[in-house]
Design a protein around this nucleic acid. Sequence first.
DNA 1: CTAGGGTTAG
Length: 712
Amino acid sequence: MASAPFLPPDPPHLRTGQDRIPPARPASFARIPSWVSLNRPSSVKPPHPTTTQHGQVENLHLVSLSKQGKFEQVHEFIKSMDEAGIAVSPSTYKSLFETCGEMGLLSEGRSIRGRLKNPPGFLEDCALRMYCHCGSLSDARRLFDEMPERSSFAWGIMISGYAQRGVLDKAFQLFSLLMDSGVGPNFSVYTSLLRSLVDSSCLEIGRQMHSHLIKTGSGLNASVGMAICNMYVKCGWLEGARIVFDEMAEKKAVAWTALMVGYTEANEQNDVLHLFMKMVEEGVELDEFVFSIVLKACAWLEDLRVGRQIHGHIVKLGLESDVSVGTPLVNLYVKCTCFESALLAFQKIDNPNDVSWSALISGYSQSGRVEECLKTYKSLRVMDGLLNSFIYTSIFQACSMLADINSGAQAHADAIKRGLISPLYGESALITMYSKCGNMDYASQVFGSISEPDTIAWTAIIAGYAYHGIASEALGYFRKMQDSGVRPNGVTLVAVLTACSHSSLITEAEGYLKSMNRCWNHRNLELGRIASENLLRLNPDDTAGYILLFNLCVSHEKWEEAARIRKKMMEKNLQKEVSCSWITVRGQWHRFIVGDRHHPQTKEIYAKLKQIDFPDGDSEDRSLLTEEDASCILPERRQQLLEHSERLAIAFGLLSSPSNSPVLIFKNLRACRDCHDFAKHVSRVAEREIVIRDSSRFHHFKLGQCSCGDYW
DNA sequence: CTAGGGTTAG
């Protein structure tokens, strides 16, 4: 082997069995694998035994090795070529530099550059580009400074190198040197400089570039115009972008899209729609980019009417199946809470990608279709490349709705293995998931792993402890948050107030809470009517607005008014959420609704309820009526009270779990007072710890007492 | 040279 310098030193994939390569013989073409000739420019004729020039095969082999990243072999092969007196050709060097640049192999690139004595100018440019691609601006600059003469390419490469890495001062310094040097700049210098101006801090220098271009008149072609417009968009100066845009001679869809992106980011969604209408009027050819951005604007505005019109346009153009159009369409319908339309739009997509799937999955979780959400996720797990960190964030959310620690922890572990936990987004969702599943240890572990928690992450952990009624921890985190300099928002304060309701550690917060409480305690019907009137004017379909007013009327014994409100809800087809409770026993789900008799152990469950023999509740305090309580006021509903879902779940829990373990129940709505009393009673007579997580918090019942202190 | 998906509470 060593005596055959032109042959691959180590081509294991060529060897079959004991097949050996004959020594000391020029390359056998039968043994040159097909990939040698791959990716050759068409101008280069494929080698042929009879017409091959000296060294051509070896050079080809070298290129091929480098493209496979086998640089150890590249060096060995170069050495053997040297020994055999075969030259490495300039085009091979060019290719080697390109590969090193693409793969970021700086030291390989350096050593190859080191072999060159007096290389031709174009090869120096290639080496320069290689250094820039590898991110070594110092190597690049050294080479640039040593060049006896610099082409306009070299200037462009060096300036772009600085610009792309955000070293703006050096980029512009060099640019002014170039202006003085007498070498005319090419367009790519301008566009790469403009492209490097990416935020509002660059606006001033961007304006200077713009005026320079106008003065010299050197670069006012379409692509430079586009670059200026984009620069102004990124720098947040939409007026400037608009002026440049209006002056463009020929406006293709790209230019419109760039400006629309600016408007969406500035949250000027109506301007996006106006631009779109103008495009349609002017007959601009619409592409998938235009639709994706205009659909995003509709989603923001939750404007279903316009959204459906645009959908119609998309269908006419036959773009419905395009993944770039179909995906934002799915999202539009999700945001407008039209889940059926979202699903239909998804089904029309030809090749849904991970973004499409994440739009669908987040739609499932946002519309509470938790089981479909998890089912879809599981089906994606066995496919390649369709899961991403967005999907996992939605999955964590779904698991917190289910309060299913098993699925949740599994998804968490899975996401860790795949490296798909999104910083802050996924982490905050995990904190909430573990909190809602009742495991504050895990929740705080996740929080502790975040290097720089933002407002939302802090809020998530505070809300978690508040949810569990552990005020001291919640307030401790709130103090730490303030110390860290992260600003709380309205949501944070709601969480803090929730925590405060069990503590007088922050007198101000307590006072605030008390003042809010007094309004409810006064049971001011007149004020309540005005408030709900306004609330319902904002959103006529808001169930909570009706329910609150209904409860208020009930507490004032205004039965007829209460009935009218109910009737109105029925007319508008607004349904209150069906109350249900669930429990997991040995990994199995058991779900109950009021008066449920579907469970296979129904007989035993009702027998157990009877055995507990809790007296029919007659709570005199109607100020804390929940939605369910209110319906219990009506005599025919009173019987139902005895069969509320959480009672069924508790009874089943007592029957089916070991007598020394706590019974953990989940409920989708707030616990009613009678059932709360029932749970206290059970915890005393059965001497069992009972934990109920309702829609607002955790309740830990022990020996007739509840951790919530009867406040929830 | 332009696009689409996800986080906290009541």
